[in-house]
């Protein structure tokens, strides 16, 4: 039986054209490989210390897509301080991820932190 929250976020996920390289204020990070069936690319547009917009590309399980969509909705319009505190546990709890899906949250958290590190 699928978890209803995961299903809800999975169904909300919609593709948005990723920003081109060189687009001002956009920071990006990538993880995994398409050939292995698990890949994600995250783009944060940062303006005046807050996250203006998030776009992503993803290939993977429904749990991974849902986790990414949840993270996007959670982080958009948040300050960078809030983003600093963003972690896997938040996603695991919010989406009630089962143990064998926890890696989805770990992957997404890592991408966000990668970008924040680059920003510093």
């Amino acid at each position: 039986m699928y978890n209803a929250i995961v299903l809800q976020f999975l169904k909300r996920a919609q593709a948005k054209t990723p920003w081109q390289n060189g687009e001002p204020c956009v920071y990006r990070a990538e993880l995994g490989a398409k050939a292995q069936g698990s890949w994600l690319k995250l783009f944060l547009k940062i303006n005046q210390g807050s996250i203006e917009e998030i776009r992503y590309q993803v290939l993977g399980s429904g749990y991974l897509i849902a986790t990414l969509e949840w993270a996007k909705e959670y982080l958009e319009h948040q300050s960078l301080e809030t983003a600093q505190a963003f972690n896997a546990k938040l996603m695991i709890d919010a989406l009630d991820l089962p143990a064998h899906r926890v890696h989805c949250a770990l992957m997404v958290a890592e991408l966000v932190q990668d970008i924040l590190r680059e920003l510093k």
């Binding site: 999975l10 169904k11 398409k34």
Partner: peptide, 13 residues
């Protein structure tokens, strides 16, 4: 080809 069948089947509830 190239897609994740589990994600497809989940969203095809």
């Amino acid at each position: 080809e190239g897609l994740n069948a589990e994600a497809l089947s989940m969203s095809l509830s």
